[in-house]
């Protein structure tokens, strides 16, 4: 991760987190495996639990279970569609039945997703 990105306040993605930890080593307990652990879990929710109007920053893409092929594939597809750690998301619209699917603003584009897939994304909520 480039220092520019850290400076821009785009923290807390899996691998980038490693860099941040080394900087703040004394302030926080060291996390041994930087790949899959999000650090600050305060006010983080699964994107699938978000409601209309919620905003946040993606802190983790993909589940912990990396044995199942479809989970790995889902993670890659989400990444390709712009759901990457550090991206800003806002829930714009919800479907009529069961509030599903959801329409999101991801950085500067709009994406539709089912809540089922949104469960693979963890966001840290930001006040609107």
């Amino acid at each position: 991760m480039s220092s520019a990105a850290i400076g821009q306040g785009v923290p807390l993605d899996g691998r980038g987190a490693h860099l941040i930890i080394t900087v703040k080593e004394d302030a926080r307990p060291l996390v041994r495996s930087p790949a899959r652990v999000s650090l600050d879990l305060t006010d983080t929710i699964k994107l699938s639990q978000a409601r209309r109007g919620d905003r946040g920053v993606i802190v983790q893409v993909g589940g912990h279970c990396h044995h199942k092929e479809h989970e790995v594939e889902l993670e890659r597809r989400l990444l390709e569609l712009g759901f990457v750690e550090g991206a800003e998301v806002e829930l714009l619209h919800e479907g009529l039945f069961g509030r599903d699917p959801i329409a999101l603003k991801v950085d500067d584009m709009r994406v539709a997703l089912r809540r089922r897939e949104a469960a693979s994304l963890i966001i840290r909520r930001v006040a609107a």
């Binding site: 990105a5 821009q8 899996g14 980038g16 993909g62 993670e75 890659r76 990444l79 390709e80």
Partner: peptide, 19 residues
Amino acid sequence: SPDSAALRHAAREAERIMK
């Protein structure tokens, strides 16, 4: 074929170029 780490890396690079 990129794996998720490569995709993340490329996304970060794209973000940097964007900025």
